[in-house]
Computed example of a mutant assay.
Amino acid sequence: MRTEELYPPDRIAAARRAAAAAGLDALLLTPGSDLRYLTGYPAHASERLTCLVLPVQGEPTLIVPTLERPAAEASPAPATGVRIVDHADGSDPYPLVVAALGGPVAAVGLADRMWAEQVLALRAALPGAVQRLAGEVLRELRIRKSPAEVAALREAGAAIDAVHQRMGEWLRPGRTEAEVAVDIAAAITEAGHVSVDFVIVAAGPNGASPHHGTSDRPIGPGEPVVVDIGGTMPSGYCSDCTRTYVTGGAPPPAEFVDYYAVLHAAQRAAVAAVRPGTTAGAVDAAARQVITDAGYGPAFLHRTGHGIGLDGHEEPYVVAGNARPLAAGMTFSVEPGIYLAGRHGARIEDIVVCTPDGVERLNTTPTEFTAL
Rank of each mutant, 00 (worst) to 15 (best):
L6W: 02
P8L: 06
I12R: 10
I12M: 13
A13L: 13
A21K: 10
A21Y: 03
A21R: 12
G23D: 05
D25C: 02
D25M: 06
L29E: 06
G32W: 04
R36H: 06
Y37S: 05
H44G: 01
H44L: 14
A45Q: 14
A45I: 11
S46A: 14
R48F: 15
C51F: 06
V53Y: 03
V53D: 05
L54Q: 02
V56Q: 05
Q57P: 04
Q57I: 13
T61K: 12
T66R: 12
A71S: 11
A72M: 08
E73S: 03
A74I: 08
S75D: 04
A77H: 07
G81P: 01
V82P: 01
H87T: 11
S91C: 09
P93Q: 03
Y94W: 14
P95G: 05
V97A: 07
V98K: 13
P104Y: 07
V105Y: 02
V108F: 04
A111H: 12
A111G: 15
D112Y: 08
M114A: 14
A125I: 11
R132Q: 13
R132T: 14
L133F: 14
L133I: 02
L133W: 14
A134L: 05
R139M: 14
L141E: 03
L141H: 01
K145P: 02
S146R: 00
A156P: 00
E169M: 12
L171K: 00
R172F: 00
P173I: 00
R175A: 13
E177H: 03
V180P: 01
V182F: 04
D183E: 15
A186H: 12
A187P: 01
G192I: 04
V196F: 03
D197T: 09
F198Y: 09
F198I: 11
G204Y: 03
G204I: 05
N206Y: 14
S209D: 10
T214D: 07
I219Q: 00
I219F: 00
P221S: 04
E223Y: 05
I229Y: 05
G231I: 00
S239I: 08
R243P: 09
R243C: 13
G249L: 00
P251I: 00
P252G: 02
V257Y: 06
H264T: 10
R268S: 13
A269I: 06
T278A: 14
T279M: 04
A280F: 12
D284S: 10
A286F: 03
D293W: 07
A294G: 01
G297R: 03
G307C: 12
G312L: 10
H313A: 15
E315A: 15
P316E: 08
G321K: 12
G321D: 07
G321Q: 10
N322C: 10
R324C: 09
A327F: 04
G329F: 13
G329V: 08
Y339H: 15
G342S: 05
E349F: 13
D350N: 15
E360S: 03
L362M: 09
L362R: 02
E368D: 15
